Amino acid sequence: KKSYVLIKVKNPKTKETHTIVVPEENLEEVLKALASQPNVKVVDIERFP
């Protein structure tokens, strides 16, 4: 059974918020990819039960 993680990201320029759902096993690479985006800020990470 896969567990999923909900990542909320915000664009500081446009103030838009997006929610991305990723499998927990991919969380680290997704966070690394997001960290390299200049106008993306991770605001929240939630685990799915």
Rank of each mutant, 00 (worst) to 15 (best):
K1Y: 05
K1R: 08
K1V: 07
K1F: 06
K1L: 10
K1N: 10
K2W: 03
K2I: 11
K2Y: 03
K2R: 09
K2C: 12
S3P: 06
S3I: 12
S3N: 12
S3D: 14
S3R: 11
Y4N: 04
Y4I: 07
Y4T: 04
Y4P: 10
Y4W: 10
V5E: 01
V5I: 05
L6C: 05
L6R: 14
L6H: 15
L6V: 15
L6P: 03
L6T: 14
I7F: 01
I7M: 01
K8C: 07
K8L: 12
K8Q: 07
K8G: 03
K8N: 04
K8S: 09
V9N: 00
V9A: 02
V9L: 12
V9Q: 00
K10M: 15
K10D: 04
K10F: 15
K10Q: 14
N11I: 07
N11Y: 12
N11C: 11
N11R: 03
N11V: 05
P12S: 15
P12H: 15
P12G: 14
K13T: 10
K13H: 13
K13E: 08
K13M: 13
K13Q: 11
T14K: 03
T14M: 03
T14N: 05
T14V: 02
T14L: 03
K15D: 11
K15E: 10
K15V: 03
K15L: 12
K15M: 13
E16I: 09
E16H: 13
T17I: 12
T17P: 02
H18R: 13
T19P: 01
T19Q: 05
T19R: 07
T19S: 08
T19C: 09
T19H: 09
I20Q: 02
I20L: 10
V21Y: 09
V22R: 01
V22Q: 01
V22A: 03
V22N: 00
V22Y: 01
P23A: 13
E24V: 08
E24P: 04
E24Y: 10
E24L: 10
E25I: 05
E25W: 08
E25R: 05
N26M: 14
N26H: 12
N26T: 08
N26V: 09
N26R: 13
L27Y: 03
L27E: 02
L27M: 05
L27P: 00
L27S: 02
E28A: 11
E28D: 09
E28H: 10
E28L: 12
E29N: 08
E29C: 10
E29P: 03
E29G: 06
V30H: 02
V30E: 03
V30Q: 03
L31P: 00
L31M: 04
L31K: 01
L31C: 02
L31D: 00
L31Y: 02
K32I: 08
K32Y: 05
K32M: 10
K32V: 06
K32T: 07
A33G: 06
A33Q: 10
A33F: 14
A33I: 13
L34F: 04
L34Y: 03
L34E: 00
L34Q: 00
L34N: 00
L34I: 08
L34K: 00
A35G: 07
A35V: 05
A35F: 09
S36V: 08
S36P: 02
S36T: 09
S36A: 13
Q37H: 12
Q37W: 11
P38G: 12
P38A: 09
N39E: 08
N39Q: 07
N39M: 06
N39D: 12
V40G: 03
V40C: 10
V40R: 05
K41W: 05
V42L: 05
V42I: 12
V42H: 01
V42F: 03
V42T: 02
V43N: 02
V43Q: 03
V43I: 12
D44S: 13
D44T: 15
D44M: 13
D44E: 12
D44G: 15
I45E: 01
I45C: 11
E46V: 15
E46L: 15
E46F: 09
R47V: 08
R47D: 04
R47F: 14
F48V: 13
F48W: 14
F48P: 04
F48Q: 06
P49W: 03
P49N: 06
P49M: 06
P49Y: 05
